[in-house]
Simulated assay, not measured.
Amino acid sequence: MVNLGDVFPNFSAESTQGTIKFHDYLGDSWGILFSHPADYTPVCTTELGRVAKLAPEFTKRNVKLMALSCDSVASHNGWIKDIQAYNNLSGDFPYPIVADENRDLAVSLGMVDPDEKDAAGMPLTCRAAFVVGPDKKLKLSILYPATTGRNFDELLRVVDSLQLTAVKKVATPADWKDGGHCMVIPSISSDEAKTLFPEHKVHTVPSGKSYLRTTPHPK
């Protein structure tokens, strides 16, 4: 298992774009590694197609993408044609799909779904998503069961928040979207808040505590 703040393992694996060494693949970029239970399955086909359509948005944010399942590279390459056909995609597939036939990565990263098994009774990967920063540390992880497809617009929103809060002394509230008001983090003193966020507002609450401070998006 990899915990938040841990350096993400620098694994080497075969993929649809050749042998990949994870840290080298990321370089100075952010990265998202997401797993799916199996090739040639319905929900996974919608997910990988949606990510392919959103690839330009991730690229704008300096994010590199990588998918993974316990199928072979040959299986991935064949399935990509179905993904493209169903999702009306053309051209080269925009990100690699990693093969993890021995489940080494799935086990080491905690990506195995015990309730989902292949025809041989071997466990499949769950719908995991890991966001890794340019420092190669895990910034966020989300695990979904096989029956629930992911919302990759949410991952774009999460990346916007992570990239903003990495450089500005703010946090993002519930349902925040890029450009929206942010929360001044509690560790910032009142005097410092006035300097850093001259337009910030302190919200009055029954407790009388001044911990709720909002500010326009710090550009």
Score class of each variant (00 low, 15 high):
M1P: 03
L4A: 11
G5I: 11
G5R: 03
N10C: 12
F11H: 06
S15E: 03
K21S: 09
L26S: 04
S29R: 06
G31F: 02
G31H: 02
G31V: 14
I32P: 01
P37V: 15
D39K: 05
T41W: 00
P42W: 00
T46V: 15
T46R: 05
L48E: 02
K53E: 13
A55W: 01
P56N: 07
F58R: 09
T59L: 09
C70N: 11
C70S: 13
V73F: 02
V73N: 02
S75D: 07
N77F: 00
N77M: 14
I80M: 02
Q84C: 14
N87H: 06
N88S: 12
N88V: 13
N88D: 14
S90C: 11
G91I: 11
G91Y: 01
P96C: 05
I97L: 05
D100L: 10
R103K: 13
D104Q: 12
L105S: 07
V112I: 15
P114N: 05
P114D: 06
A120Q: 12
M122T: 15
C126Q: 07
V131E: 04
K136R: 15
K136P: 05
T147P: 00
G149M: 12
R150E: 08
N151L: 08
D160F: 03
L162D: 07
L162V: 15
V167I: 15
K169C: 10
T172D: 03
C182S: 08
I185E: 03
S187T: 15
E192L: 08
P206V: 14
H217P: 05
